[in-house]
Design a protein around this nucleic acid. Structure first.
Lengths: 334, 334
DNA sequence: TGCGCCGTTGTAAACGTTTTCAGTCGAGGG
DNA sequence: CCCTCGACTGAAAACGTTTACAACGGCGCA
């Protein structure tokens, strides 16, 4: 049926060993032998059997990527960056979603079986606890973490603290003193070090300016547009409403923006709004925000993974800088 | 190093054949033998070697998915739907991006080598030409197409014609007669049957209402927020500007919405706007739109693929219905 | 009691590579 | 002219499964 390496060898008048070497561009093959082999392979439509290679060679050329979701803006951006680099180095990408706790557990259970399936694993916003981290380490897979710092694991993230600090500082610079935090009331920060860092950045900026964070200025929950709407509703109920709000994500900010306008609040004259992400709808919305180059995160992660193949396996941490993009949702108070 | 099936067999006091049968839940294994084998496997931390299984068994349990991009809303939604179903049936998902022509060509070249790597392939908005379709067919892979109808291939898409028809009709019902089409000026409709269908739906609705489509009402190019902005700029330059506009995508509509407001046009009193997608920011924007249940597209595609494993390989076409969601961007003219 | 059948198990032959090791052949140096 | 060395090539042993086929035992039925 399918042509095998045997067929190519016979047809080209060489041994299978030579075909194998020639196909993979290895040394110790005479130039015209290689040419003959390649041409024969082409003619027979030969392509190496994946399972056979992986069995004999011990490697698959596949990289895994696990993320909580793929339909959220952040993860899909990372995915694209990773895919680009990987496909250019002719590796394949297999993806796993760890959205629900069950999925997550199932994924971790499968870890031992993944070892023969992929050469390395990219973790996107995975936030493993101690047991999970140990399981990952013991798998022996090459690991790269995106979005968080993991001890002993090569990791890459954007500078969340700095981003939040700058966003808040931008509002302070414009004269605001009553600055709320959209998404500040998180159920569990252990589950999301990323948000913890952003919240820290917000607080640090306030403190450095001699301002006190107020509990009642921590608004809304989820970082979605629905969460943003809820945050604005809360804000309007406050005795002393803030004049500015820093949302922990753009989706949330855009939801908040729409709700503020719907409830008759003019932005930016009555309320300044800053987001975080530079979501691709943020420009259309005119939203002032912190740009995080998420796709680059994916690119760097994949490059790191590719470098692993060349035995460069250190667990350093890389920080991608962020940038403040001022659009039309911020101004001075009143 | 790693435990093999041999180790399990020896330890459990049975043959490798029995272990293989027991592990895969096959018949012809006594219940207590199975229990003993499973327990031994568990104890030794045994997991089958992927390459070996695939070599001997001829199947990999991996499904491929190729899409133009993954960071656009539509594709990432499909991806999530597919992933859900596949992971529940313990299959893995490997993804390929066919964004640039080079990537696309490279992907098609690799097709023969993919056969030993994946069991089936899901095409998302792939729009193959005749040669490409033949290459796909000859690969012998199980194929499912999402977003377009492919002769002889199981395919699933939403009802684009109907959606556009309803969107346009909604505007007609409200009394509009001058209705523009945002994104109507496409460079090549051959490349995107999806858009062609939407445009047909728009035209059909006009004609059924006795209205004539006007060339100058085909506005803007790309279906992005930038494209939407351009469309509004064009619209404002027209001698007899339309009172309503149907955008071929929500991103475009939201870009247009923001630009219209920025240029002092009140929505909906001066301009009605309808989109297409029900993007997850559409609700926040209050955008009237056509809801396409994209995630369900992915779910159906994956289910179809799983059914293929049970030899149900017919090339029928399935149409997922759409729904008009009326929000706050449409009203009667003037 | 003998026979056939069925459920369970084992033996061994694939499956198609990669890689080690040994071998050949020609060139160059002593 | 012999020896060594290096570039190239081939033979054959893994790699760890799946699966056809054979074998075995017990049970029901005649």
């Amino acid at each position: 049926m399918r042509a095998t390496i045997q067929d190519v060898a016979r047809e080209a008048g060489v041994s299978v060993a030579t075909v194998s070497r020639a196909m993979r561009g290895m040394t110790h093959v005479a130039e015209d032998t290689r040419r003959r082999v390649l041409e024969t392979a082409q003619r027979l439509g030969y392509a190496p059997h994946f399972g056979a290679s992986s069995l004999a060679g011990g490697t698959t050329g596949m990289i895994g990527l696990v993320a909580p979701y793929f339909h959220i803006w952040y993860a899909s951006q990372v995915l694209t960056g990773v895919e680009h680099v990987l496909s250019a180095s002719s590796r394949d990408l297999v993806i796993f979603a760890g959205d629900t706790p069950e999925n997550r557990a199932r994924f971790l259970d499968r870890l031992p079986s993944l070892v023969t399936r992929i050469d390395g694993l990219i973790l996107v916003d995975f936030f493993p606890n101690e047991d999970e981290l140990r399981a990952l380490r013991e798998s022996g897979l090459a690991l790269v973490a995106v979005g968080e710092e993991l001890p002993g694991v090569a990791s890459i993230s954007i500078d969340n603290f700095e981003g939040a600090y700058r966003a808040t500082n931008h509002l302070i610079d414009m004269g605001h003193t009553n600055i709320a935090l959209g998404g500040g009331r998180q159920l569990s920060l252990d589950a999301s070090p990323v948000l913890a860092l952003r919240i820290d950045g917000y607080r640090a900026a306030l403190e450095d300016a001699g301002l006190k964070p107020r509990v009642e200025y921590d608004l809304g929950g989820l970082l979605s547009s629905t969460g943003g709407r809820a945050a604005i509703d809360e804000l309007l109920d406050l005795a002393e409403p803030p004049t500015a709000i820093f949302f922990l994500s753009d989706e949330m900010a855009m939801g908040g923006l729409a709700q503020a306008r719907r409830r008759g609040l003019h932005v930016p004259s009555e309320l300044s709004v800053v987001g975080f992400d530079d979501h691709n709808m943020a420009e259309a919305a005119g939203l002032t925000t912190i740009r995080q180059r998420v796709r680059e995160l994916g690119v760097l992660a994949a490059q790191r993974m590719v470098a692993f193949a060349d035995q460069d396996r250190e667990g350093s941490h890389e920080l991608v800088p962020v940038e403040l993009v001022v659009r039309h949702t911020t101004s001075g108070p009143h």
